[in-house]
C-alpha cells in the first residue's frame, strides 16, 4: 500500500543513511532561489532521478495532485504576496506581477519537493527508513515504535473501512445534516476503530517481551548496510549542488 517499487536501479541499492541525508540535501536545493527559471534545473534534476529510479508510475498516480498543488500555490501567493506592479485588486487584496511570478516559483518549488519525496519513497523500503534513522542516532525503542506503526497502518486501514461499512449497513449517513451533526457522526466510526486498536496493547506488550524485547542494553541487527564509495560520491555531489546553487543564485 506504500509507494515503494521493487526495482533494480542504482538508487535502490544506496545505503539507507545515504538515502535519508540525500533526500534532505535534495530538498534544500529548490530553497536556493524563488525565481521560476532558477528552479527549472532542480525540477529537471529530480525528474531525472525519478527516471533513474524507474518510478514514473508513482508520479502518474498523483499527476492531478501535483498540478493542482502548483496551481493552488500560484493563486494563493498571488494574493498573499505584495509587489509593485499591481495587475488588479480584489477588496483589500491585490495581485501583482511580482506576486504571480513568486507564486509560479513556489509552485515549482513545491513540486520539486514533492517529486524528491516520491523518488525517496519509490526506492526506500519502510525497514530501510527506520534502520537509517537508527544509524543516524534515533534510539532503538523509538525506531521500533515507528516501525510498529508502519506495520499496523494497513491493518487499521482495513478495520476503518470495515467499521464504516458496518455502520453504513445500520443506516449511518455521513453526508446529511449540518456541519456539527456531520462531525458527530464520526463517533460511531472512531470509537470501534480506537477500541479495536487499543484493546490489543497488553497482547502486543506480552508478545514483545516474550520475544526478548528489552532483554539487554545492547542488541545486534540482522541487516547491515555498508557505506560504499558510491554513497559518498552521491552525498558529495548533492552537497556540492546545494552549495553551488546557493552561491550562484
Amino acid at each position: 500500500m506504500f509507494l515503494y517499487l521493487e526495482r533494480d536501479t542504482p538508487l535502490h541499492t544506496l545505503n539507507p543513511v545515504t538515502k535519508i541525508i540525500g533526500l534532505v540535501l535534495l530538498l534544500i536545493l529548490p530553497l536556493s532561489t524563488t525565481h521560476p527559471l532558477g528552479l527549472l534545473p532542480s525540477l529537471a534534476f529530480v525528474l531525472f532521478l525519478l527516471y533513474l529510479a524507474k518510478a514514473f508510475r508513482n508520479l502518474r498516480r498523483m499527476w492531478w495532485f501535483v498540478l493542482l498543488l502548483g496551481a493552488v500555490s500560484i493563486v494563493l501567493w498571488s494574493f498573499f504576496r505584495q509587489g509593485q506592479t499591481i495587475l488588479f485588486r480584489l477588496g483589500f487584496l491585490s495581485v501583482s506581477r511580482e506576486s504571480v511570478l513568486y507564486g509560479l516559483g513556489m509552485g515549482i518549488r513545491l513540486n520539486v519537493m514533492l517529486i524528491s519525496g516520491l523518488v525517496f519513497l519509490s526506492c526506500t523500503k519502510v525497514e530501510e527508513f527506520t534502520l537509517g534513522l537508527r544509524k543516524l542516532g534515533l534510539p532503538f525503542s523509538m525506531s521500533f515504535a515507528l516501525s510498529l506503526a508502519f506495520r499496523l497502518v494497513p491493518l487499521f486501514f482495513t478495520t476503518a473501512s470495515t467499521v464504516l461499512q458496518a455502520q453504513r449497513a445500520r443506516g449511518l449517513d455521513l453526508k446529511r445534516g449540518s456541519v456539527i451533526q456531520r462531525v458527530k457522526k464520526y463517533v460511531p466510526l472512531l470509537i470501534p476503530i480506537f477500541v479495536y486498536a487499543v484493546r490489543n496493547t497488553d497482547q502486543l506488550a506480552m508478545a514483545l517481551e516474550s520475544r526478548g524485547f528489552g532483554a539487554r542494553r545492547e542488541r545486534t541487527y540482522y541487516i547491515e548496510y555498508q557505506m560504499k564509495k558510491i554513497d559518498l560520491a552521491v552525498l558529495l555531489f548533492l552537497g556540492a549542488a546545494d552549495v553551488i546553487s546557493f552561491w550562484l543564485l
Partner: peptide, 24 residues
C-alpha cells in the same frame, strides 16, 4: 495480528535473536 511487529518477514523472525545480541 498482535504478535507481529515488523514490516518484513525475515526481520520478524530475526527480532528475537537480535534482542539477545546473537551474531549476524
Amino acid at each position: 495480528e498482535s504478535q507481529l511487529f515488523s514490516t518484513n518477514v525475515e526481520l520478524e523472525v530475526a527480532f528475537g535473536p537480535e534482542n539477545f545480541c546473537l551474531p549476524r
